[in-house]
Design a binder for these strands. Structure first.
Lengths: 118, 118, 118, 118
DNA sequence: GTGGTCTAGACCACG
DNA sequence: GTGGTCTAGACCACG
């Protein structure tokens, strides 16, 4: 029911990342209306203020826009979404390659494992 | 100079991960003596209490052992190290594959990028 | 299309200021008939209630008058307009001088920049 | 005693602007330590959360930095301060020139008034 | 009903 | 003691 959170990171940031991933994956579509702060707060079992803060952060990043009285929606701006997607992928890959090298894996070996895991 | 930390995660956990990575990568060798809490704390520019806590966590995980009088050293136990390495790699790969799928990347494409990035 | 508003201030106040500026600048002339609340609301993309409230405020300030049947018009009273103009200019200048001093600009320097910017 | 606030704008934003002005004017010097959130909140007669939010915004703008446990200080980075100063001055001047033109003042007249008011 | 702001106050991490 | 996060809940602007 309630979303699950990791104790070692602020909840609001985990919410930001969750929603960001939904936007970048297209699960939340460009321009789609987002549930109200109150509803999302109930869904996630967090305080409305916490949800508010998460959504505000998404606004700062340009992924979400607000219409004062009619709620929030995913940005219409493809460029912002694509940029965020590219940046996340970039970071993810570099991070991964660094980690695998560090653990002693070679390139070929890593690719093989990815193929299996895919 | 000082190690760099991310404000959004407990410092002691970030230290744990850093030292764990050094052990798993072999930068800190099996059985190698570890600097004193004091020295490490200075090196990292953190409070000795914080460093202490990090090392304790590494003991709990079995990666570090204590000799009352002669300080700490990396475990001699290959098995523990290998297990930790495997687990970390597992988690890392699954995480990565999930993320890339989510961002819309395919298996071949991902492997190509890894090759470039390696 | 729609007028643009700053999220950090009541919309009705921003409308008041916009129309006031149009009156003081003469863009809306002395005695000129003002569009209906309805039309203005559509033009500004705001709720009629909001526009209503803005016009009421302008009445309170004496810049706009109402004729029960024939709608609103800009006041005929030169004195009121001139007074408002003077007050706004006063406030604007004092504010500006304070700001520039505060930012470390001198009088001569400021005058030079104004000349360029004019 | 308590700082004075305008009802038509969020308090936290007014605090941001007040402190920003103190930094840009040099009243708060480069690298100077800033009072604790709690103390500032008492000084301003606002809730600590409100003050926290204001300081967080100043952090986002790069004007203030945090040391987790030892409090906040004005940034050491001249460039950031100078940039902010220039931007504020720019906006202020353009705004002012626009306003004065709008009110029917000429360039020479405006400069004369500034001289008197300085 | 929607988002935004604010207060009050608890609890945590780090020192 | 310092900042950070979170909850609970009030009240406001706009519709």
């Amino acid at each position: 029911m309630a979303w699950t959170f990791d104790n070692n990171k602020p909840i609001y940031l985990q919410i930001v990342e969750k929603i960001e991933r939904e936007i970048l994956s297209g699960k939340l579509e460009k321009g789609e209306k987002i549930s109200s702060v109150r509803d999302l707060a109930i869904e996630a079992s967090v305080n409305p203020n916490t949800m508010q803060r998460a959504l505000q952060e998404l606004e700062n990043r340009g992924l979400v826009t607000v219409q004062r009285t009619s709620g929030r929606q995913v940005t219409q701006d493809d460029e912002i979404i694509n940029l965020a997607r590219t940046q996340l992928a970039q970071a993810s890959i570099q991070n991964f390659v660094f980690e695998m090298k560090n653990l002693g894996f070679g390139c070929e070996q890593t690719k093989k494992i990815i193929e299996q895991e895919w």
